[in-house]
Computed example of a mutant assay.
Amino acid sequence: MVSDSDRDPRHHTRKMRARLEETINHLREDIDKVDEPQLKAMFETSAEVLEGLRTAFSHYETRSESAWR
């Protein structure tokens, strides 16, 4: 049986934002651990893309964009 919190979209968006935040932080931490410039760039680009996704989840939660109203 599905609980009420499982039915609340904000429950899921918060969990996804937290996971994205963990991955963003991990990518940024690993930039200093590698020497290859292309890999550093890929990690930074990936973190930036995930930040955009995290922002989209936040906008969905707060209904701050017209697409989510």
Rank of each mutant, 00 (worst) to 15 (best):
M1A: 03
M1V: 14
M1I: 10
M1F: 08
V2S: 08
V2K: 10
V2F: 01
V2I: 13
V2H: 01
V2L: 10
S3C: 12
S3V: 08
S3T: 11
S3P: 07
S3K: 15
S3Q: 14
D4K: 13
S5A: 13
S5Y: 02
S5T: 13
D6T: 07
D6L: 14
R7T: 03
D8N: 03
H11C: 10
H12V: 04
T13H: 12
R14N: 05
R14Y: 04
R14I: 05
R14F: 05
K15A: 12
M16R: 15
M16E: 01
R17T: 06
R17M: 15
R17P: 07
R17N: 10
R17E: 03
R17Q: 12
R19M: 13
R19H: 14
R19A: 14
R19C: 12
L20F: 11
L20V: 04
L20M: 03
L20W: 04
L20C: 00
L20Y: 09
E21L: 14
E22V: 00
E22F: 01
T23C: 15
T23F: 12
T23Y: 00
T23K: 10
I24T: 02
N25P: 01
H26C: 13
H26W: 05
H26F: 06
L27T: 03
L27V: 03
L27P: 00
L27H: 09
R28S: 00
R28H: 05
E29L: 00
D30E: 09
D30G: 02
I31E: 13
I31C: 08
I31N: 05
I31M: 03
I31R: 10
D32P: 02
D32M: 08
K33I: 02
K33N: 09
K33D: 01
V34P: 00
D35K: 11
D35H: 12
D35Q: 13
E36G: 04
P37Q: 03
P37H: 04
P37D: 08
Q38C: 11
Q38K: 13
Q38S: 06
L39Q: 05
L39V: 05
L39W: 11
L39S: 00
L39T: 08
K40D: 01
K40R: 08
K40P: 01
A41V: 09
M42Y: 14
M42N: 15
E44L: 05
E44A: 10
E44C: 04
E44V: 04
T45E: 09
T45Q: 04
T45S: 12
T45N: 09
S46V: 03
S46A: 09
S46I: 03
A47S: 02
E48L: 06
E48I: 02
E48R: 09
V49G: 06
L50M: 13
L50E: 06
E51C: 05
E51H: 04
E51Q: 02
G52D: 07
L53G: 07
R54I: 00
T55A: 09
A56R: 06
F57V: 02
F57M: 12
H59I: 00
H59D: 06
Y60T: 01
E61Q: 10
E61D: 13
T62N: 15
T62G: 12
T62W: 11
T62L: 15
R63F: 03
R63W: 14
R63G: 11
S64T: 13
E65I: 14
E65P: 10
S66N: 01
S66C: 04
W68R: 01
W68G: 12
R69I: 03
R69P: 07
R69Q: 14
